[in-house]
Design a protein around this nucleic acid. Sequence first.
DNA 1: AATTTAATTTACGTAATAGTAAAATCGGGG
DNA 2: CCCCGATTTTACTATTACGTAAATTAAATT
Lengths: 133, 133
Amino acid sequence: MKSPEQKQFFTITELTREFEVSTRTIRFYEDEGLIQPVRRGRTRLFKPSDRRLLMLIMRGKRLGFSIAEIREIISMYKEPPGEAGQLNLLIKRVNEKRDQLIQKRKDIEETIAELDQVEEQSLTRMAELGVST
Amino acid sequence: MKSPEQKQFFTITELTREFEVSTRTIRFYEDEGLIQPVRRGRTRLFKPSDRRLLMLIMRGKRLGFSIAEIREIISMYKEPPGEAGQLNLLIKRVNEKRDQLIQKRKDIEETIAELDQVEEQSLTRMAELGVST
DNA sequence: AATTTAATTTACGTAATAGTAAAATCGGGG
DNA sequence: CCCCGATTTTACTATTACGTAAATTAAATT
């Protein structure tokens, strides 16, 4: 049994099962240029690097990022540019993205805290019912 | 100058400015049943409670929740039901939503860590350029 | 009263993100 | 060799979350 990182290639169906998406979705991401599987004949073969990209895409989706935003994030992971101006631009965009993420984290903390309250009130209410029954 | 919570009513334009959305968007949320402004004649008047709902909606949007999911979250904030079965259902859904949020928070932590690395590499590269120039 | 400004209703349009169906093709097992 | 299941391409469809335009009306200003 090979681990995903050892495997040379994945078929599209293997990936649809692992990530619980349709073939249509994976091909859509290819159309969008997010992944570039190689071909054997007409059949797509996905490398471990394609699989890692899919993991990034799914994570981005969970966070509510659009395809365009995911594309931008992925592009940041490539080799840093050699030109100073481009490097500065990259750093600026990294900081913007991080600020967005920090805001989201704050939103999450607040929402979790509120849900905790809802649960607490519900449990209190349950106890009251248990007593009054 | 009254604070938002002291004000009795807000006009739609006041809210579009505060939340940086269009009137179309706010009316759309009304159509979806997320808010129920009262009317003076045909004109909508928004209470502080409507404004608080809008804050919840915007937060949900930042977290990538759909209108349906936001509606579900909002519904959890209402008075807990009086029947035990319904209470159990509510508690179950609260826990599901919290799990989702915890997953998102994990996704965020990972992404931030990766962005930190990108920045670090970029700064290193900048230093090299500074030296080699 | 006339004009301007703001808000409403109605309806059609659109971009993003896929779902679904049909027809063709390819590769492997018996 | 032939069939079957997996895969591909192509094209049409669907949903969400609004944008936009037009016609109408109400409110405020001159």
